[in-house]
Simulated scan of single mutants.
Amino acid sequence: MRSIDLTTVTWRKSSYSNQDGGACVEVADGFTAVVPVRDSKNPSGPALTFAVGGWSSFVSAVKDGELSA
């Protein structure tokens, strides 16, 4: 598995994140094959990377209400 350098990326908060500081997910754009994702409350913690197709399917499922808490 290849390591991805995320030290200089710009993170953006998901539009589905809670704006009062809770449940915040951030993603980094600019990668062709993966989407890095992290917890904004722990920016120095680990980031997960998802294949672009898998992330796209997940986002579509959230938008379509297919996932419930």
Rank of each mutant, 00 (worst) to 15 (best):
Q19H: 11
V9D: 01
S3M: 13
G30H: 03
Q19P: 15
A28G: 07
G30R: 08
A47S: 12
A61Q: 11
W11Q: 03
L67S: 07
T49Q: 01
D5T: 08
P43I: 00
K41V: 05
M1D: 08
R2G: 06
A28I: 07
S68A: 15
A51F: 03
K63E: 13
P36Q: 07
V62I: 15
V52L: 13
D64C: 14
K13H: 04
F58W: 06
F31S: 05
V25R: 00
A69Q: 11
G54N: 12
L67F: 12
D29S: 14
N18S: 13
P46T: 10
S17Y: 03
L67P: 09
T10C: 10
V37Q: 01
A69E: 10
S17R: 03
K41Q: 08
V9K: 01
P43N: 02
C24Y: 02
I4R: 02
F31A: 05
R38D: 00
T49H: 01
A69C: 12
R12D: 09
V27Y: 02
G54T: 10
S17D: 05
S3D: 11
L6G: 02
S3H: 11
G65H: 08
V62F: 05
F31W: 06
D5W: 11
P46G: 12
D39T: 03
W55R: 08
F50A: 04
G30P: 05
D5E: 12
V52P: 05
A61V: 10
V52R: 15
G22D: 13
A47V: 00
V62G: 08
S14Y: 02
T10I: 13
S44T: 14
D5K: 08
S56Y: 04
I4D: 01
C24Q: 13
G30K: 04
S68Q: 13
V59M: 11
A69S: 13
I4M: 07
G53C: 06
L6R: 02
V37L: 05
G21A: 09
W55G: 03
D5V: 11
G22E: 11
S14L: 05
S40T: 04
T7C: 07
T49F: 00
R2D: 11
V27R: 00
A61S: 15
G21I: 04
S3T: 12
V27M: 06
D39R: 00
F58S: 01
D64H: 13
L48R: 04
G54W: 07
G54L: 04
L67T: 11
K63Y: 06
T7F: 02
R38M: 01
M1Q: 11
I4A: 03
Y16H: 15
V35Q: 01
A23D: 07
S68T: 14
D64K: 14
V59T: 13
V35N: 01
V35L: 09
G65A: 09
D5Y: 09
S68W: 08
F58M: 06
S68H: 14
F50T: 02
I4K: 08
T8D: 14
L67R: 07
V25D: 00
S56C: 09
V34G: 01
C24I: 09
K13S: 08
W55K: 05
T7M: 07
T7D: 10
E66Q: 14
R12T: 15
S15D: 12
S44Y: 06
W55D: 02
Y16F: 15
L67E: 08
S44C: 10
E26Q: 12
G30L: 06
V37N: 00
W55C: 06
K41F: 00
G45F: 04
D20G: 11
S57N: 12
K63S: 13
S44Q: 14
